[in-house]
């Protein structure tokens, strides 16, 4: 009852939100719908939202044409690899930036800030040559290396560390718990929400990396989902929409399922990413 009254009072609000939500969601339903159609059912003059008869064959065909399960495994390895090293590098750097005063601090901090702003695209060529020199082309590590340091993550975490009262540190030092132990036992647990937020953001953004993995990989045994999709798209020359959409649905599904299940965590994390304070 209460809800009904609420609806009446705010019907304008809900109307707007519903329409906008519908508009943003529609494209994804369209992927799903197209991916379940028969090839000849796609080209209809009026959009057919409910595919009938349903054709699951498309998904099987996609899996036969390209090893998407392998791409999925590779993606997971690459994304977690990046994150693992990132967590180490940003925690250490954020710690000194927030707790120490040392010569060159502003300069180094500036470097970290600048790194946030330099697009990866601007550094492809030299990075490619570097990896070639170390004979790392066409490996999963090649896809991770340029992302091991994160200016953004450092900045975010520094903000979180600064929120933690300095008195805590003094107490810890008196207890004989300085430096790394303090970092590990006091700061890291207290900054857990930020670490989780950064992790989720890192995972999402590297899950979606495209051009760099494309340039450094050659073979399906190391390629990731997005590259698999890109290759698949070109192979089909944009022509076979049922298969393309089935592949697209598969590539987007893992992240979206995660998102649906952990919506609250995801939303909190992205909200935290605004470095508010």
């Amino acid at each position: 009852m209460k809800f009904n009254r609420h609806l009446r009072n705010k019907s304008g609000l809900h109307l707007i939100l519903m329409v906008v939500s519908l508009i943003t969601v529609a494209p994804y339903f369209w992927i799903l719908s197209t991916s379940l159609k028969y090839r000849t059912e796609v080209f209809t003059p009026t959009p057919k939202w409910i595919p009938w008869p349903i054709n699951i064959q498309n998904y099987l065909e996609v899996f036969q044409m390209a090893p998407f399960h392998l791409y999925l495994i590779n993606t997971i390895i690459v994304v977690t690899g990046i994150l693992a090293v990132q967590l180490v590098t940003i925690t250490l750097a954020a710690y000194v930036f927030s707790r120490k005063n040392f010569w060159g601090k502003e300069f180094f901090f500036f470097l970290f800030l600048i790194q946030m702003m330099i697009p990866i695209h601007a550094t492809f060529l030299p990075n490619f040559l570097t990896l070639k020199r170390f004979d790392l082309l066409n490996t999963r590590v090649a896809m991770m290396l340029p992302f091991f340091a994160s200016g953004y993550g450092t900045f975010l975490l520094r903000q979180a560390f600064r929120q933690i009262p300095r008195a805590l540190e003094d107490a810890a030092v008196i207890d004989g718990c300085g430096g790394l132990r303090f970092l590990w036992h006091v700061l890291v647990p207290l900054a857990k929400p930020t670490l989780i937020a950064f992790s989720i953001i890192s995972i999402v953004s590297h899950w979606n990396d495209y051009l760099w993995p494309l340039i450094v990989t050659d073979t399906p045994d190391v390629r990731t989902l997005t590259i698999g999709l890109g290759m698949f798209v070109q192979q089909e020359s944009g022509a076979d929409w049922t298969l393309l959409m089935a592949a697209t649905a598969f590539v987007t599904a893992p992240m979206l399922i995660f998102f649906l299940v952990f919506q609250k965590k995801f939303v909190q994390s992205f909200m935290l990413s605004g470095m508010k304070g």
Partner: peptide, 15 residues
């Protein structure tokens, strides 16, 4: 609402 407005962020740009 929040989920349906935010989910495009989670999709790879290529897709």
């Amino acid at each position: 609402y929040r989920g349906s407005l935010f989910y495009p962020t989670m999709i790879p740009m290529v897709a």
